[in-house]
Design a protein around this nucleic acid. Sequence first.
DNA 1: TTACATTTGTTGTTATACTAATTATTTTAA
DNA 2: TTAAAATAATTAGTATAACAACAAATGTAA
Lengths: 145, 145
Amino acid sequence: MQEAQKYSRYSFLLDRTARRVKQYAKQRFRELGWSITVDQWTVLKQLFDRGELNQRELADLTFKDHPTMTRIIDLLSTKELIIRKAHPDDRRSFKIALTQSGQQLVEECLPEVQSIRMKAWENLSESDFKEFKRILDSIYDNLSL
Amino acid sequence: MQEAQKYSRYSFLLDRTARRVKQYAKQRFRELGWSITVDQWTVLKQLFDRGELNQRELADLTFKDHPTMTRIIDLLSTKELIIRKAHPDDRRSFKIALTQSGQQLVEECLPEVQSIRMKAWENLSESDFKEFKRILDSIYDNLSL
DNA sequence: TTACATTTGTTGTTATACTAATTATTTTAA
DNA sequence: TTAAAATAATTAGTATAACAACAAATGTAA
């Protein structure tokens, strides 16, 4: 393979694998009868770990843009897993909080999510993880603005 | 970090990095004034490399599903970069072919695409590429159906 | 040959991704 | 203090991504 073409191939493999990982988790969520998506889960988990956050903070933590976060928040609100509370110090902003059923859902799903996530890494060693993380971070930094 | 949480973190980094790579390419395409997306490019490039293909073959090669491919083909047809030609042996199917302007576009864009792709891999070594590919393939296989 | 299964492609629906533009509010600077 | 700049969130438009259901054509087995 030509030198230059090789890099396109790696980018393709990265994209393909990331899609597969997401697809697998999505499918397992469905099979388990959970009515949330993987991206919605990520938001719930952040709120579970860190407590109330505004939408900008959630967007930054999950590396999503603001319009996307608005819509994920809308969907989670409709399902009554979170609520937008008025921000005490800033009327432009909301405090997003888990509802009781949101809290309960995270607690129930957490072990299963972890086993879904583990599946991808079967047969890989501790040093593989380190290498992988290092390379991913390097790629990410190369493309930072 | 807890053992189980680690795997979620790796999945997150993978997703984040893949999104960044796509985002970077998309932005460069825009800056260069190209009116195609990265996924559309991938289809054009396959046709350029392999000649006429049907939609199933294109979907298989790019690891996209058939409805997604239908829509990408629709968009490229509208832009007159490709055409659906009747398949001589199978009336269910089309032969997808580059038009002259499609062919020309690929030839013009190819060097620039390769430099966009290379950007991600700066400061990484040949053995990093090999390791990375091995780990990606392993993850992909772990989640195969 | 007929009935059934498979294949190819399309349509519909929901969700995420990114861009641009907009509103409301808050911050900063003259 | 007032005007301009910046920020938080939303809305609108277009493009992927995945899934289900479907139509038309082809293949296969009795």
